[in-house]
């Protein structure tokens, strides 16, 4: 009897959890924002989301075939990269743009580092910044919400930057997404529904999003207007890509710190950079750059924010 006993090291039980389960749940949690994007900007938004996602997955597949690595496209991470890249694009861009962006995201942002788990930066943001630098015109032309045609509008943050906000945009419009902006960033309500899923499942913790948003709010309140302590912090939270970035991109496991202490520093850092760019920079929005810069600082943060070991 028993000639084929399994003899492996402890522990002998395992939590019912897997990378693909986490990744597909994250992908699922982005769907409300996508639906909102399609409702607000029309079917163009859907085609862009699909183009970016299909391109991201295909690129990963082809790259893995060529380099003879294990094919990992079913783990869901490339899908997330595609979706998040699309969410960071205006709905009026030509369809080749998300494709090029997704290819860049997957190859330069992820594959060359060694694939899942090895990337230093959030791959979707790498793609986005690349598109921004290469085709700035496309990347800053925003169709008007609910117009479903070629009419364009500036984003609220751009209007603010240019001093063009003549009348107040109602907060409710900002919250529901009735404003110019990128596909997946405009509907705060939908983003919060997705974020709630991730928080309830325990796949993200509140530390990065809350410290990020809070820091941005405080700094824009203090320095966001001509007079100190008169900034419209709520406007800053609700416009631009802050909510999308804080919950879905600044929480990317791979490129963020491991300990809670580190994550708090990461969140504050993101908030600081975002606020600086928005208030004093030459650019209306700072979320992408803030997260990428803090991604770069992550190994450094990790080194100085180790947990206290029992008995020390």
């Amino acid at each position: 009897m028993k000639n084929n006993l399994i003899v492996s090291g402890s522990p002998h039980i395992h939590k019912k959890e897997s990378v693909s389960r986490i990744m597909w749940t994250v992908a699922l949690s982005t769907i409300p924002a996508g639906i909102a994007g399609v409702i607000i900007f029309g079917l163009d938004a859907l085609w862009i989301i699909l183009a970016a996602t299909i391109a991201a997955v295909s690129t990963e597949w082809v790259f893995e075939l060529i380099t003879r690595r294990k094919v990992t496209i079913l783990d869901g991470s490339a899908v997330i990269t595609g979706i998040l890249l699309a969410y960071n694009l205006p709905s009026g861009v030509p369809l080749w743009l998300p494709v090029v962006g997704a290819i860049f995201s997957i190859i330069v942002g992820k594959a060359v580092f060694g694939g899942l788990g090895q990337n230093i930066f959030n791959p979707a943001l790498v793609g986005r910044v690349f598109l921004m630098a290469s085709w700035p015109k496309y990347m800053t032309t925003f169709p008007k919400p609910f117009s479903y045609d070629a009419v364009t509008s500036a984003t609220p943050l751009a209007m603010l930057k240019e001093g063009k906000i003549l009348e107040h945009i109602p907060y409710l419009d900002l919250f529901l997404g009735n404003r110019g902006g990128c596909i997946g960033e405009v509907c705060i309500l939908a983003l919060l529904i997705g974020a709630a899923i991730l928080l309830i499942k325990g796949y993200i913790t509140w530390h990065i999003p809350v410290t990020y948003i809070l820091t941005t709010a405080i700094l824009t309140y203090i320095f966001g207007a001509k007079q100190f302590f008169h900034g419209d912090w709520l406007f800053h939270i609700l416009s631009g890509g802050l909510i999308l970035g804080a919950f879905f991109m600044a929480t990317d496991y791979v490129a963020t710190p491991l300990t809670i202490k580190g994550q708090v520093i990461f969140g504050i850092g993101c908030g600081l950079i975002t606020a600086v760019i928005r208030i004093w920079g030459g650019y209306p929005e700072g979320v992408s750059y803030a997260i990428l810069m803090m991604n770069a600082a992550t190994p450094f943060i990790d080194r100085y924010t180790k947990n206290r070991i029992y008995g020390t």
Binding site: L116, T259, I260
Partner: peptide
């Protein structure tokens, strides 16, 4: 599979280690 740095081990460790590192 590769470590995705999810930090579940870091949060779970009862003596405050970073097992993934």
């Amino acid at each position: 599979e590769p470590c995705i740095r999810c930090a579940a081990c870091v949060r779970g460790c009862p003596v405050g280690l970073m097992p993934c590192q």
